[in-house]
Amino acid sequence: MSVWNETNSVAEHCWKHGNPGFPVFDMHGHMGPHYAIYFKRGEAADMVAHLKKAGVAKLAFTHHYALWEPSYRNANVCEICKEFPENLRFYVGINPHYPEIIKEDLAQFDKWRPYVLGIKMLAGYHKVNVTDKSYEYALKFADERGLPVLNHTWGGRGHYNDGPSMLKLVEKYHNAKFFHGHSIFGDYEYAERVVKESAGNSYLELTAVPGENGMIEKFCELVGSEKLIFGTDLPWFDEFQAIGGVVSAKISDEAKRNILHDNVERILGKEW
């Protein structure tokens, strides 16, 4: 008997019905074209259609242009979310090279509720370390309000969003909810430390992890499934692939539920 036909399991439900039997929250997405890849399904309507097929109730995303193209403003993204109020939420893309834009955008944060959730930093691409003072205004803003802060992180040392830099952030801010995008991929030592040495406000976000053999199992061992958040980088990665990677991992059904749904509900509540 395989993982897919264990009676009444999350994996069995996925295999039979294409969804785990409860709503999934995807906390790391994007939208729009990206220079490095061909996307057939990179716009809101196609993305939402894909989410619905896989039983993903909500996607929290940052538009590619809100990160890569400074003239494209986060206000546009809010308008896109309004077209899909049940399914889409966004992070304000923070570009450290444009402090005035950061202030202007965050001044509209309350007006953008409930579509806006928090902020997103992409230090490795903006080439400014996450600890740099150019992020301080946005980080303080998020910390005062207890908002999610999604960072693009990666393993290896000595770069803009490496483990040691992420650790400094969580040591400094105790109230914002840090989602470490890609779980500091490959750096297990710091993936563990950023969670365990935080004030309890630090989570590993799994984009690019599901499917990697044994990696989710290892994270469950190191920090516990209560500290893991599901994400896909949609439209980069397929929801079924990523959900498939979680539910076919050798972890308990409780852990699978934590990752796909429960943890986010504990952080953000039932209405968001």
Binding site: G18, K53, A54, E212, F240, G244, G245, S248
Partner: peptide
């Protein structure tokens, strides 16, 4: 691509490929 990847992720992706 085992053993770097597990078998299951791509199975679900294919089954629900449309």
């Amino acid at each position: 691509n085992f053993p770097q990847y597990n078998h299951g992720n791509g199975m679900l992706q294919l089954k629900y490929s449309g």
